[in-house]
Design a binder for these strands. Structure first.
Lengths: 426, 426
DNA sequence: ACAGTTTCCCGTAAATGC
DNA sequence: TGCATTTACGGGAAACTG
């Protein structure tokens, strides 16, 4: 006779990578009478799974039994923490056992850790048993975003502790709930969640309609299975790549709420077109994963033009932090003085006032060498009618007059020597 | 009775990393009479090693027996190739068995793979046995340079096939032999070995004397155990970091023989001081691992000044290839026009003539964005008498006599291409 | 405390499988 | 063949260990 008298706490990770250690903890819910024997708990993986439920089978390759300990002496509560557990796939050449084959992604396949123990009192054996919340098993970190999507969707849409078939027919989420979860993705690690305008843009992107209502339904497929129309990635892959970029390269700027980020090109145009020349905003690339760009408005005569720089990805941002790129960015046009076109952060904050505190001003002193840094530049032909991208040699010949002009504009404040520390990896 | 009738060829790798697959091949030297049974070969690791010889013990965690195959039907020659072999350390809590402890680095500890087979003809059993050349076992790629140093020293200084105690008292190398090996390190993967002037600089660095003779002796310790005076790395660590930099970021420039590379600051001054303003040369940093810098001469009035930029390491070179850095490098001084100070590659080759073919001229076309690139810049105060950050001269002073002496010695011939026997390293 | 060494594991690339 | 998934392992960092 089996009794669910133990509990697992949904320990991180809910996503387990094969070959990587994880830990979990089990606690005994009933208080046992004083016992003089050891209560040994055994961990199993996917033990009672009906056949054909999963396409892959795993087993625990590390020690999987451990004796319970008194966790809290006042209550006498027993618990055990398994550390250094590790999973490996069982290679079954027999593919007929693969039930989900072709139907689910591996990140949609739910598994579970089981825990069993038996204790004997006065000749009476009692079997205790419990299991974890559903788990996703991956083999490479590149599958993590997919795994998180599944965990999010599961937590959002069911209270069942163990519905391993959840992704066989995943329910839809209403936009009210989903937007709240998306907001958490940002507010959980930073000072800023998503503003309603940002959420609106995400909702439109996801639902493909102008104004999602609270009750609009988003399918799992739309969220994390099918690609965004015309793009080689799903909505969630795109959003997660941005979360990653923020965490690793944009945290300070994001925390200051300087990244509008999620804004469609239409809205961007509306916002900028009546603004002063040199007004710019920061938004994430919709066409590339994990990219951020700035768009500035340029007014000449009666004409209004918006320019966006090629998005910066993590590789480029590790050469120079984003705030410093904004600080020193120069546009070099034929016959025109190199100039930083970024003057006011939308709506009208002078650039240095906004970003001043975020600049890396410390020069690395590598005596006796002359210190070095990168100047972020773009080159444009001055005539917009010519091919904008057959970018000529980045060092066009200049007349002496142009040099003088350049000189005026590229005059750095030499008392505060700009110096950019090489960005730390990882 | 054991007979050495099998042979191993010293297969790559001579350095084995635990947990990483390697392969090896054994060939039977005697021609066996037609046999109708399988000849099974077993691979062992450090089997007959006298106790106390090594501080670490390893075992093969993968399949270690395999049946011999006919390699060449005309000769009937038998051979077997073991693939996917993998090593793991045996953790012996008993540290008394550790003989070399504290005496040798792990990269100086030599091991060997053994191979055994038994075949029976008409009731007569014959045991066959052989073993590999000495092997170095490492646990992380950061130990590879140390491993290569050991392999080089062993190959250079002994013909014994299996002297596992070699590093208990490693012999010295004479400079003539050693410089040839160093040359191979470069010529084996590139079009350029080391010129005699470059080797001279290395010899001086290694021997700490002005002019090493062919018979000067270099100790193993000097080569790969003790740090270069005042530096936190050994001679070989330094040189290997440069080899790595060339392979990954400088191959085209190195192949063109445009990197003088190994040139002391004293010689650098001699070479540049009488040259036209804007003449520059490329050399490797002596103070940082895996760095390259350029030094240019600047003449104003009667004053000659040499400037060196902070060395570029692999991280920076992955933002922009070196040739493009040279192409676009700008110095920005107060009140002076930003200018590329690099005009002539020493002795007098116009920069673009030398590097033109190596420039990356293709702009990335990321419609509809404005393309972007890095401009490599340095900022200097215009007054050389101000703080050290301005532009100090990296060289110690020398007497005019010394300059002249060296000057005669040190003229690089940029037309001569030295070509030496390639020596495989991987 | 510390230096040498190993372990851990992300992230890219290649291999594998379906 | 193409795509999903796993394997391989370099490289940086943390953990380990005498």
């Amino acid at each position: 006779e089996k009794q669910p008298c133990m509990a697992t706490q949904p320990q991180k990770p809910l996503i387990i990578k094969t070959g990587v250690q994880f830990a979990t903890k089990v606690r005994l819910l009933v208080k046992l009478p004083e016992v003089d024997y050891q209560l040994r708990v055994k961990t199993t993986f996917d033990k009672d799974l009906p056949p054909g439920r999963v396409s892959r089978q795993f087993h625990i390759v590390t020690h999987n039994t451990k004796v319970m300990d008194i966790e809290d002496y006042s209550s006498g509560c027993l618990s055990v923490t398994f550390r250094h557990l590790q999973l490996k796939e069982k290679k079954s050449s027999n593919s007929s056992t693969k039930g989900n084959e072709g139907l689910l992604f591996v990140t949609e396949e739910l598994h579970s850790l089981g825990f069993e123990a038996r204790f004997t009192v006065q000749g009476l054996s009692v079997d205790l048993e419990t299991c974890s919340l559903p788990l996703v098993v991956i083999s490479n970190v590149c599958q993590l975003p997919g795994g998180w999507a599944s965990v999010m969707w599961y937590n959002l849409l069911t209270d069942e502790p163990r519905n391993l078939a959840f992704f066989c027919s995943p329910p839809r989420a209403c936009w009210r709930q989903l937007s709240e979860v998306l907001n958490w993705q940002f507010s959980s690690f930073s000072d800023q969640g998503l503003k309603k305008e940002q959420l609106l843009m995400l909702g439109e992107k996801l639902l493909g309609q102008r104004a999602p209502s609270s009750d609009s339904l988003v399918s799992w497929s739309r969220f994390s299975r099918e690609n965004i129309p015309g793009k080689p990635f799903t909505f969630w892959m795109w959003l997660d790549s941005i979360l990653d970029l923020i965490k690793k390269h944009l945290l300070t700027v994001w925390n200051e709420n300087y990244i509008m980020g999620f804004v469609s090109k239409e809205v961007e145009r509306l916002l900028l077109k009546d603004r002063e020349s040199g007004t710019f905003l920061l938004r994430f690339s919709e066409s590339h994963l994990g990219g951020i760009t700035f768009t500035w408005v340029e007014r000449s005569n009666s004409e209004v033009k918006l320019n966006s720089v090629e998005p910066y990805t993590k590789n480029r941002l590790s050469a120079l932090p984003f705030a410093d790129i904004i600080r020193h960015y120069k546009v070099i046009s034929e016959g025109v003085v190199p100039e930083n076109p970024l003057k006011f952060l939308y709506p009208d904050i002078p650039k240095d006032e906004a970003f001043g505190r975020l600049y890396n001003s410390e020069p690395s002193k590598v005596y006796p060498y002359i210190s070095f840094s990168w100047m972020p530049i773009s080159e444009m032909r001055s005539s917009p009618s010519s091919t904008p991208l057959s970018c000529p040699s980045p060092e066009p010949s200049m007349t002496p007059g142009e040099f003088d002009m350049l000189s005026d504009h590229m005059c750095f404040d030499l008392d505060t020597v700009v110096h950019l520390t090489p960005h730390e990896r990882h």
